[in-house]
């Protein structure tokens, strides 16, 4: 029986989308502080139309990450995003739980 491991499904999904010729970006939680909702290694795959699979926060910052993922699909540059209470973005998109999280966004070339 194959496991439903959260991270691995997302990478499979991203690779499958890419294999279909879709443009794809992958976001990965690289560091967490405090009570962030998803562990290091959690992933979110985003395609050129904003369709996504997986999660990096359980919903709090997905909107902002998807926006950056679409930008990465456009320009090909990787991005390292910080979200948390010390970040002014926190008020807009923040983690209500008071945690901090760093997310790396890259395009699948």
């Amino acid at each position: 029986m194959t496991p439903d491991a959260m991270t691995d499904d997302v990478l499979d999904q991203a690779a499958a989308w890419r294999g279909q010729g879709r443009k794809v970006a992958l976001a990965t939680v690289t560091t967490t502080w405090g009570s962030s909702p998803r562990p290091v290694g959690s992933q979110l795959a985003v395609d050129e139309h904003g369709k996504f699979a997986g999660s990096v926060s359980g919903g709090c910052i997905e909107g902002a990450v998807i926006k950056e993922a679409l930008a990465a699909i456009d320009d090909g540059r990787p991005r390292l995003l910080d979200f948390g209470v010390t970040n002014e973005q926190a008020w807009d998109v923040g983690l209500a739980c008071g945690g901090k999280v760093q997310v790396f966004v890259e395009r699948l070339d």
Binding site: M1, T2, P3, D4, A5, M6
Partner: peptide, 10 residues
Amino acid sequence: RIGAMAGFGV
């Protein structure tokens, strides 16, 4: 089933 959902190869 629950083991697989929790990420185990069963």
